[in-house]
Design a protein around this nucleic acid. Sequence first.
DNA 1: GATGCATGCGCG
DNA 2: AAAGCGCGCATGCATC
Length: 834
Amino acid sequence: MKLKRDPECTSCRLHETAEHVCLLGTGPAQCDTMIIGEAPGHREDDSGRPFVGPAGRLLREILDDVGLDDKKIFITNAVSCRPPKNRHPSTTEIKACRTWIQRQIEEVEPSFILLLGNTACQSVLGKKGITKLRGRAITEDGVTYVPAFHPAAILRDPTKQATLEADIKLFRDLSQGRSNKQEGFNPISVDTPQQFADMIKDLNGTVSFDIETTGLYPWEKGARVQSIGFGTKTTQWSVPLEHHTHRPWPTKLHRTMVRHIGRRLRDCSVVAQNGKFDCLWMWVHYGVRWEISFDTMLAHYALDENDRHGLKYLSQVFYGAEDYDLNPINAEWPEMYIYHCWDLYYTRRLRFTLGRKLNEDPTVKAVFQHIIMPCSELFLDAEYNGATIDLTQFGEADKYLTERIAEAKHKLLTCGEECGQDWSNVNWRSPQQLAKILFEDLDVKVLNPSKDDLTKTGNKSTGESVLKRVQHPIAQSLLDLRGANQQMSFFIKGWEPFLDGNLLHPNFKIHGAVTGRPSCQHPNLMQVPRDSRIRSLVTAEPGWEFIEADLSQVELRIAAELSGDERMLETFLKGEDIHWQTAIREIARTGDRADLVISTAEKLEPSNPSCSEYGEAIQVLLRHGPKAAIKINPAWKDIRKKAKATNFGYLYGMWYKKFVTYARDNYGVTVTEAQAKASRSDYFNLYKELLPWHKRQIRFVREYGYVTTLTGRKRRLPAALAKRDSWERKAAERQAINSPVQGFAAEWNLMAAIQLRDEYRRRDVKILGTVHDAILFRVRKEMVEEVVTRVLKIMERPKLLDRFGIKMSVPITAEAAIGPWSQGKELDEWLASR
DNA sequence: GATGCATGCGCG
DNA sequence: AAAGCGCGCATGCATC
């Protein structure tokens, strides 16, 4: 190398302590690949060569393993002098040394650079955050950079070794040209009838499909499809439709062109990235309902639910693609269609890469094929159908909330006057201002304060849990104001921008949750308050009925199935209520509420003389169940609700200490730690198989790093593989218990929804969404009886279970409510009221 | 003005 | 021993 080191360099403080100043890299004078580490270690300082310590040995081992010859790579460091012991180079030192690393890059002229650790990334890319940067290549000015963990990080945390190896393999593949060739990229802007005809002829076999739009919501005013595109083996065709500058095709031709293409696509295997989005736009804007046979985003979700699934990201990860992103909303056509064609190109390539990966994991592939992909069709319908909103009642709810907000604000101001404070300019939503008023101006004390009363950043919390215990009249008004404000901004102001007439079209994300649950946004239909004044805004148009069909206590039933717990199974087989069982047993254990227990029992069995005895009264309550007891005294409703939360908490690994705060915040009940401990151990004594099942899950996840649902869907939890006990590992272990339950419950509900959609035509049954363990849909009035009867059958045993060979010993049951959401009636009642 | 994080809370 | 899980959204606030 011509470049000479400068042993007299004084551009940063490091020259004062380093034994050798300015140690440059070694390797071929000019070569295509370079590795940049952090700074010389003491071994390098002695020998003058980089990467000779333990980290260097590890690096060379991995390079050797993946088949890279370290002698053919130029190896150097971002900083050329050794920092003092136990210290990383500072930002100033990195900056000072940047000239040296840049000169080395200029002289060696590599096309591929492996960046080891944060320092190298910061120095060369100007970016920090190796955890996020790693795993994908970044190409700038013709040089491809691959950020990876520094081998020294692996010495500290060996679980990262596989990640480093994968990243070095990516570096190898890219530098050896194995996958970053862009063969077959042949973008065409379809501007003439001849080009259109050529495109139609070319639509064969596997075709990627993608559209560019002016926004994300097809019902938005002025929303337009700018172009539609198709990628084949040899060519990417981008057809401009309503682009703001380039419009070679008259608008009146668009529908004909679209139909023409649609006919061709019927014989193709259509691939898309989040195809539900593109299909929805095509349906709304051109009235065609196209189907996707392979969705690359969803395939990647099935393969790694923890990762990101964006197209640009995947293209970088798998093919080292350059960042070709641009803002498609106002781009000029020449840039736009190239961008569009890259999308088409990489989507089609991903089809094959991800397809191969799915083939390596047949159970995951089955979930993808039979649940995830059909969900795409299910939710496409749901989004198109939308949720019908009662606009008259919408106004009423607005008025009601406005009044509630005004009332709460008024109370707060009056309160302030009484305390001699002027609060007219206070922003009650600001935690800072509120904390100042509460804890400084008023100096209020919190009842039974706990360490949870501080926020993560150490501030005094003004959350619900604290407010409920604040002994000051403003606390209640604050809670009222918060609730009303939130409901107002969520459901009145939040919905308005999405209203399409009286319809809301929420977006369902099939890949929304790591467990397999879908999520929902814009707006989120799954978080509509249960307060019937808000929830019943969701209803049906004249001639139709709104129906919610939900699975009963499905997660607990699945937990019973998976754990094989005899008592739980028995409870469900007998058709008893699990939350009620827990509630009554908890009461009986503590001997609490004797008056309520005995008085209710006496009314339930007036002719039974032993009801006045506590033990017998408990048996009577267990026999009669919650409905009868609540009828006699509504207090039982709350007691059952409390037990429900207890059931879930303990089931998923809640610790007794949390139960103390939980009981306090939700029920104002003071439970001592000893009582909480007893309650927890009583729970696991009652359901004896739960803890052994927890242990089985933990053992499995610690060995394999993942767990599965009964369908074979994987929940990957690499944190569970850590050798050292840590909070992260514990969290992963709890997820290993929760995910198979939550995930399978969601899958069950989705299997049922898919089947419901298959069995009826859209003109009779319109599904508008799912809410975890429930299906929401509208039915033509005259078909209500038939469809409700059928949907309950489907939900109790969707036929897709057979494909996965699933046999259940616990019964799964469902119920349906007919009528505006939260105000629905059971079928019998509905029939009688007609 | 855009972005990211924290807080707080709605749902299952 | 910082031991329930899974989401989305509005607001405030610090940061560039």
